[in-house]
Amino acid sequence: MNEFALQCPAPAAPDRVQLAHGGGGRLTAQLIERVFLPAFANPALRVLHDGAVLETPGARLAFTTDSFVVSPLEFPGGNIGHLAVCGTVNDLAMCGARPLWLSAGFILEEGLPFDVLERVVASMRDAAREAGVAIVTGDTKVVDHGKGDGMFINTAGIGTVVAPTAISPRAVQEGDVVLVSGDLGCHGIAVLSVREGLEFEAPVESDVAPLWPAVEALLGAGVEIHCLRDLTRGGLATALNEIATASGLGITIEESAVPHAPSVRAACELLGLDPLYLANEGRFAAFLPECDLERALATLRACAVSQGAVAIGRVSGASARVDLRTVIGSLRVLDLLSGEQLPRIC
């Protein structure tokens, strides 16, 4: 069809990669379905979890990888190095796996100041120590000035699965409760504030942190965990939609139960952003049977990284959709975002 002929012309499907293809929303899902899954199809990938769980003689291993392209490289509460370690460690933790080894690949832009690189690497060392992992292999490439945003980092991680049962969207059951490990949106606002040059009276710091200690504590307390998901790009709303789709079950959450720091709420009100879609780097959602809820909350609240844990909703019905009970008591759909979340005009 000739796009000039439409009444309100719209390109049907973009023929080039756009930023939103990496935003974690609907376009990312389409990209994976259209390009990567058909090419790489295998059972471990098909699960579409944060990491692959692989059976090898004598061990069940979790294997994951993630690339980090944050701009600016340093932001309130962390830097790209923290993210590169925590992001991969957390993906392993979400498989119920104890993180053991990481790789680190650096793509450096010509002209990057050494002191920035050294601060980032020091952060990686500290975060790895905190998470109990060793960075055992690596690679470095340097690209021409202007061809990289200072520094990109890729990390891959291997862990051993210690959870007694499979942790995945397919293990989610009707009646499960949904909880989050703390207040949401700090990382998204912290990065936005420096990227866009916004200044808030109370600076918002990123929540970036390794989540394995919280998961390990849950497993140690004997909590039956059905599914875990870290709430990175696309935030809570995106994670819940992915789990609803993958499990075929409906999820209903209470808007008033979802915790946000007052400064995050205020920033979202000002900028017209929905905090449910903001990225977190040290928060996760857990699905578990209601009988284990109190034990899970008490266990999580005893860990520094998850002391703000609360229940926010439950799994019900076979709608494969996420509904939100609003603060005024009405019910509406909580959908995937179409593209990047953009500040609104009015």
Partner: peptide
């Protein structure tokens, strides 16, 4: 531009698509 204008399609595509190019 304000952010939400970027995605709106016109006869030559959207500003977001222009940015991608």
């Amino acid at each position: 531009s304000f952010g939400d204008m970027l995605r709106v399609p016109g006869p030559l595509g959207s500003l977001l698509a222009a940015k991608a190019e």
